[in-house]
Design a protein around this nucleic acid. Sequence first.
DNA 1: CGTCTGTTTATAAACACCGGT
DNA 2: TCACCGGTGTTTATAAACAGA
Lengths: 605, 605
Amino acid sequence: MTSCALDNSLTNIQWLGRMSSDGLSPSTVKQEMEKENQTPVQVEGIKIEEDSSAVASTSTSSWQDSISERPPYSYMAMIQFAINSTEKKRMTLKDIYTWIEDHFPYFKHVAKPGWKNSIRHNLSLHDMFVRETSANGKISFWTIHPDANRYLTLDQVFKQKRHISELQKNLGGSSCSKTEAQNARRKMKPLLPRVNSYLVPIQFPVSQPLVLQSSVKVPLSVAQGASLNSSETGRSSKRVRIAPKVLSSEEPSPFLPMLPVKEESQCEEGPSPFASAQSMQENVSQTGKEPASFPEAPHIKEEHEGSCPDEWLSPLPAAFSIKEEPVQPDEEQGLFLPVPPVKQEKHFTMLKSPPRGISDTLVIKRRERREMGRSRRKQRLVLPCSEEPLLVLPESSSSDSFRLASDLPYLQETQPLENMSQLSCCQEEGGPFKTPVKEMFCKLPISSTPSKVPVATPPMVGLNPWRSVPLAKENSTLDFSPVRTLTAPFTSLQENLDLLGFNSTPLKNPLFESPRELLNTESNDMVSGPLTSSPASNPESTKQLSSPELPASGLPENRSLMEGLVLDTMNDSLSKILLDISFPGLEDDNLATDISWSQLIPELR
Amino acid sequence: MTSCALDNSLTNIQWLGRMSSDGLSPSTVKQEMEKENQTPVQVEGIKIEEDSSAVASTSTSSWQDSISERPPYSYMAMIQFAINSTEKKRMTLKDIYTWIEDHFPYFKHVAKPGWKNSIRHNLSLHDMFVRETSANGKISFWTIHPDANRYLTLDQVFKQKRHISELQKNLGGSSCSKTEAQNARRKMKPLLPRVNSYLVPIQFPVSQPLVLQSSVKVPLSVAQGASLNSSETGRSSKRVRIAPKVLSSEEPSPFLPMLPVKEESQCEEGPSPFASAQSMQENVSQTGKEPASFPEAPHIKEEHEGSCPDEWLSPLPAAFSIKEEPVQPDEEQGLFLPVPPVKQEKHFTMLKSPPRGISDTLVIKRRERREMGRSRRKQRLVLPCSEEPLLVLPESSSSDSFRLASDLPYLQETQPLENMSQLSCCQEEGGPFKTPVKEMFCKLPISSTPSKVPVATPPMVGLNPWRSVPLAKENSTLDFSPVRTLTAPFTSLQENLDLLGFNSTPLKNPLFESPRELLNTESNDMVSGPLTSSPASNPESTKQLSSPELPASGLPENRSLMEGLVLDTMNDSLSKILLDISFPGLEDDNLATDISWSQLIPELR
DNA sequence: CGTCTGTTTATAAACACCGGT
DNA sequence: TCACCGGTGTTTATAAACAGA
Ligand SMILES: [Mg+2]
Ligand SMILES: [Mg+2]
């Protein structure tokens, strides 16, 4: 509706975005590219400009303020926000792009064009997103599987944030020292999206804002004040923040049980010019809103046993309704068991899986359900769909946000210590290296999990003398790789910060993960409160009732910022170059051997 | 059984592998790293050496010969090969690593450590792989969901290859010029894994073997001879070949309907030292083997409707039993329809999906099933699981390979032209740029689909003067990026080759894809032969009957080779460096703004 | 504390297919 | 009508970040 709003605002945004790049050297690449990204597609879209102004100007909401920063939501979450912002709960790919750009300027002005590829990838990959075709068959709409849709909207998330932050303040920031964290367990559950989830490409050497925001450990007051100061040196390396990882099955019911919220309503092809401002405004609007009361509420079906996949559940930093839901006895069906279905369930749900005939091994799902604490990691986390087929979570239908508050305390506890010590460091600065470190180009790479090096710079560098303090470990092996050295500085700084207690990264937001853990740990000792099995993954609950589930949602934490807008694509080039240089033509021999694979003995050597 | 075979052989292999690296310059990185990769994990494994000799020495089989080249199988396929090589059809992660290293030396000597991360990623991502725990709960085994397991083994694939190649020869190599290819349509269906699937990191400038192998276009004889000659210049750029993309549902029944084949039998923890030789030998062994006749043949269950996910089906370059299978009338169920189920089905299968309430839009699946040719792309390809719940493909139970031969012609036809013109070029050399090209680091990037530039070398290059012949298109935009130029040469060469008919890339191996296409095109005009819907995706068929399906499997084509064992990880570093250089401290400002996301107006600028 | 295993998210790519020109 | 192109969709490959043991 508010189409063709102000181009000016948009312009402003861009301006800001450019600040970083400016007329730098050619290597600045990013900015250049970025701009192109948006323009190509949107320029023609007609609905490009609109009210991007809202984003730029509004300071009320939580993170949108920092216009060019990457939002703490995963692509999956953003897609859901976009689709759920329409009345029909469906949206064309192009409109999804537009919605996201309008609500998250980062993608419009900073992100590389590849972000659209990621959107498409997510739409295809997640079963939650279903493509439907218009009656005439001319248009394709992306929808959210009714059984999986919790009707999450950006607004809801915002509200959640506010609630959380308020609560945190009231609670007093949990400094989350081990002891404290542990104690806090039951009470705190940072609904926030997990502290560190961002993708922002990195760029600059040092001095990055660490900001934690409302998330876990740091009380808002602290976070805000501290963020500016200490955050400066925080973590600057990393290039792309991996989203919080919401664990799909977290909250069976939507954040706020609410159903559709009608945000934009311009479904169909309607460019929907104006969406941006809304989210902001909505935040300010009334908090409590009752769910159910929407026409199209889809799903309902019978939810067999554990029919829902996994993402179905909580695609974003949603709430985690920890209902407690007693673990059912033991179904004992072939394979899909309602309870702690491991993630793998997905398809399994209906299949008779384990007719294996081997009795000595149990499908982990079942095992886990029982032993909970044993078997192998994860999986139990999978609560997702098949999880608790039975529990519907028909609880608080509209007061969710509040509910969440109470639940929030939860998550954090799961592993206070660990977060602080290990995790916390790593995230922000690139500190610890759980997985080795990654091989620069010597012979360091040992762990199979890549792991990134904070600053990673190619050998020929030496240009950025940010730091040169080796971590004390691997240095010896690599000499020429400046990369390694860079990390050192960060770690030191960050470590300090972490210790101080306001490192955003450490704890991140156990929010979603905690649910899992809770379930698991339940049998052990962790459990104390309400958790149990689960977040009703059942779509039904969501639809039929506005169901209770305590939708807590995560909140952004923001802390890191966009560091460089680096273009990953370049990476390849560089690496190749290096290689080529070093290797004249040796490989040709090897390569040449191909022949038809079918034969040809290595004659080369 | 044949444990502790010859260490010598292994040694030899390594030797060969090293040939490429040797004592090159430090930049050689790869080799260095690679070695470390393997050593760390395997060195301790005890079962490391074993009979790797088989691999090195045997020239009988198709591609294993080229020891250091990346096999044409996707990770998913290799994992299946590994797991299905055991009697119990289960394997620990470590053993999977070992099996793959033993059977595909590439991973043992060339691949970067990240390949193990990819293995784990595939295990977790694909629902087909289910983790089970031993009775005592001490050990985790990875298994293949019985409903999805077609008991594919490396041996079977090999056999398939041979069959195919033979058939091709008999048929006379289809030079696959457009006209020919089109004509061949119904007859040829290259069961091979698709020509170009590899991941090999790239490294060298020019002169790469193109080798096509037995796959589609090129008759074996031709491929072999030609490969060496023309292949030289083929494609060298690309870094990682994306696997053929087997389209999971391709062959509902296993290649060779066979059930378990017992290859290694050393399940459990047994290091299984000796697996390697077997595959080779088996190839030589009898070709025709009847299926069914194995104890544990799992699945059977009732396969509801479209209960199987998708990967369930044909994870590897399996055969594509193009049974014809008439498209069922129209089930009309909520969403999952047996026929051309779109991939999205996965979970949907059992859920009542579309209770949406909106009648104007149809779930694509349904639509496609009906209209087939309309709606949106793909999806129909999805034949995978839900596809033809009904058709079982109980056809030729053991003569599949032959069947395949007849089918092969099929695939290629789908889009001969396009492949030749557009696709073919791109693949090999980096030729055309369907998706723009990717941004080197200027402002070129426009298409949201990354697209790689053949040689991608950073700006400062000029080192490899492989080619400088622009494709005629985009050149103008990028000047300094040597990358672009590199592609040109290839294209020219390859194009020529393609025209010749033995370009591996263009058509690749429509094998698996063809099925999809066939189905789709059916309604249109493409269809001519037997295709129709499908490759029985039903697990049942596989098990119950050795069902016919024509398992054609893909074959390697190999063509590209490992170009550089470049380390992607480095890339980041490089890009960052460049950025940093260009940007002094501008961003700090931006970054500093983080604060707590919740507030803070962009004060920086 | 470090490694291995497992789960997820992010990206880049390679293609397929479709519709517009 | 057809070839080319760009947008849309689907998959595979990789790198990473974490959780858990
Ligand atoms: Mg989908
Ligand atoms: Mg799995």
